[in-house]
């Protein structure tokens, strides 16, 4: 219940924040993931760099060809924002199904992405949306594709001296749609994903021109199910085509057993939720 002692800084500018980021530091935005870990004494950084005071980072803005989601945008905002709904419904749904009201009021979308929990919802949404992660440090700024961002369990490409300052979500065309669905640990949609899938499709002349499908809860990290997308592209998006594509859900995925499911069950669920997400994504076009 009581974290170990640590130092704390709350910079007012990005420059100050980079300055503060030395060894054994941890960036904190909402703290919904970090603080419980510290309370359980599973992890204690030497210095917590609280970026909560950084200006202008709590906005979702239309940047022409993409939507910008700042580091301090809360899950609840992502869930209810019109721009996100119009361009990345899968991410909006994933944000809406993250935690509970209080968590959605404090936790940030960027924080959830950087935390890279294997059973979190929004990484799948970001993967399906083909979001670009903008990671900045004293040394400059770099862009990381979502598909390269989730490295391993609780490990993202955002280094300890870096801050995920915002993400860029490509604008969606009229022939595109996306969706997210999961089975929560408590059953239904509640809690972390036992298995979840996000799907994005682009239709053209009645067939699937492009697709992206992402999994969460199933493997060692949130990841794209590329062979599903390959199998889906070029089909008519019929139930039969979706089911056939969904059979590839865990191709190349190391499926992890846990309290909530055996390898066999999670493999099965991955297929079910990939199928459900694709079906809904097509419906959302």
């Amino acid at each position: 219940m009581y974290p170990r002692s640590f130092d704390y800084v709350a910079p007012n500018t990005l420059a100050e924040a980079f300055n503060a980021l030395g060894d054994n530091c941890k960036v904190m935005a909402g703290g919904m993931s970090l603080i419980p870990l510290m309370k359980m004494r599973l992890f204690t950084p030497g210095v917590v760099v609280d970026i909560g005071n950084l200006p202008d980072m709590d906005q979702i803005t239309d940047e022409g060809d993409h939507i910008k989601v700042g580091a301090l945008v809360r899950h609840g905002t992502t869930a209810s924002d019109g721009l996100i709904a119009a361009n990345a419904q899968a991410l909006a749904t994933a944000a809406a199904l993250t935690g509970d009201v209080q968590v959605r009021n404090r936790g940030t979308t960027c924080g959830a992405l950087a935390h890279a929990d294997i059973a979190a919802d929004q990484p799948a949404g970001a993967l399906a949306a083909d979001a670009v992660m903008v990671v900045e440090s004293a040394g400059g700024s770099r862009e990381v594709a979502a598909s390269d961002f989730f490295v391993d369990s609780l490990t993202s490409a955002c280094g300890p001296q870096e801050i995920l300052t915002h993400i860029k979500i490509p604008k969606a065309g009229e022939d595109e749609g996306s969706a997210y669905d999961k089975l929560g640990r408590r059953g239904g949609h509640s809690d972390y994903a036992v298995a979840g899938a996000a799907a994005w499709v682009k239709k053209s002349n009645g067939s699937i021109e492009a697709a992206r499908v992402a999994l969460t809860g199933v493997g060692t990290k949130p990841q794209l199910a590329e062979s599903v997308a390959e199998a889906l592209v070029g089909t008519d998006g019929s139930d039969a085509a979706i089911e056939a594509a969904a059979q590839h859900a865990v191709d190349g995925v190391v499926v992890l057993e846990d309290l909530y499911g055996s390898e066999e069950y999670k493999t099965h669920l991955a297929k079910v939720y990939v199928g459900r997400a694709i079906k809904q994504a097509i419906a959302n076009v």
């Binding site: 359980m40 640990r185 408590r186 059953g187 239904g188 509640s190 809690d191 309290l259």
Partner: peptide, 28 residues
């Protein structure tokens, strides 16, 4: 539907927090 205190074979409690020991919520 939800609750189970689970020990591993070494006697470690695997469900010692409310994270892993889900009691019913209003939505359930």
């Amino acid at each position: 539907m939800f609750e189970e205190a689970v020990y591993d074979s070494d006697g470690n409690m695997l469900t010692g927090s409310l994270l892993d020991y889900p009691i019913p919520t209003a939505g359930d």
